[in-house]
Design a binder for these strands. Structure first.
Lengths: 157, 157
DNA sequence: CATTATTCGTTATTGGACATAACTATTTAT
DNA sequence: ATAAATAGTTATGTCCAATAACGAATAATG
């Protein structure tokens, strides 16, 4: 097996290249979010709640492909930091409606700006066309992959 | 914020799309490798050792961007399953030289065939050109990302 | 040659993300 | 009225990744 790189066989797989790329992204994103007291999953949740006030937890879980039990700690972290509020839905006493606080809105927007920079760093050297191509290809792969068990028919928020 | 999808803001980031794509890949890969008693990191290590007999641990860590302490359990799993062997290097009594056993070779090749199928499933709907483009773009992003602390000058195996 | 610095593999620990089963309370379906 | 489904929660476990520190061996230095 005389190959140029020791991991040449693995390099043939899209999954391996993606893992390698994503590892770098994740480390940079983590460092980017750390000053805001956020991490990848709490940032994602905060942004979606920010954009969709009144969202319910089960819908949030579906949108982010996060298992509902795992959402509990995420939301607790955000609530404890006074970034979101949870109010019982009037039409269903089992459900909460999620919204950002004023503090959460501000932090969300600040973190967003930092993440825009992070993304620019990560995609340095890619043209706008290439970035769009990448997104398109990733979306196709995402559609091919296994979906979370919880990905059932999601009710409107 | 009237947007088409609840996570539309996040969809602007390459990292988010990659995470979503990679999550699906990882789940499928995990299921694919499970019948072989392997998981992502043990499979990767087995393949690289298979392709590079006599490889040393520190080099393997560098090749796979895995922290050296984390390699210990991975290699123990492979050794316990009789898939690899570790022999003390003659030229350096601190180091091990890694190689696959006959059993490891067989299993490696069987798992490889399954992973080829997995990759084909994951990239269904992508042309050969598109797959090559994806790999190229991922490599560029990988180069932009943060590298592991341990990524210092790697000695030859 | 002796001393210091570096390297190899290891132990220990912790954090982050993700998966599953089971549960109570509430709502929906029959 | 009863059974089934749903929303959120608790508990637990797996996988992968990061860091500090260590003893033994090797390399570098004077």
């Amino acid at each position: 097996m005389a190959q140029a790189a020791p991991d040449a066989t693995l390099r043939r797989f899209s999954g391996y290249g993606m893992k390698r790329a994503f590892n770098g992204i994740q480390a940079d994103l983590s460092a980017t979010l750390q000053p805001f007291g956020l991490r990848m999953v709490t940032f994602s949740a905060l942004v979606v709640i920010h954009d969709n006030p009144g969202l319910r937890q089960t819908r949030l879980a579906g949108v982010l492909a996060i298992e509902r039990p795992n959402l509990v700690a995420i939301l607790e972290d955000l609530e404890r930091a006074d970034l979101i509020a949870r109010t019982r839905a009037e039409t269903d006493r089992r459900a909460y409606e999620l919204s950002v606080t004023a503090k959460g809105r501000t932090l969300c927007q600040q973190a967003m700006a930092a993440v825009v920079d992070h993304d620019r760093r990560m995609t340095r050297g890619l043209s706008a066309d290439e970035s769009a191509t990448l997104q398109k290809l990733l979306r196709r792969i995402e559609g091919n992959g296994r979906t979370p068990h919880d990905r059932r028919k999601i009710s409107r928020a």
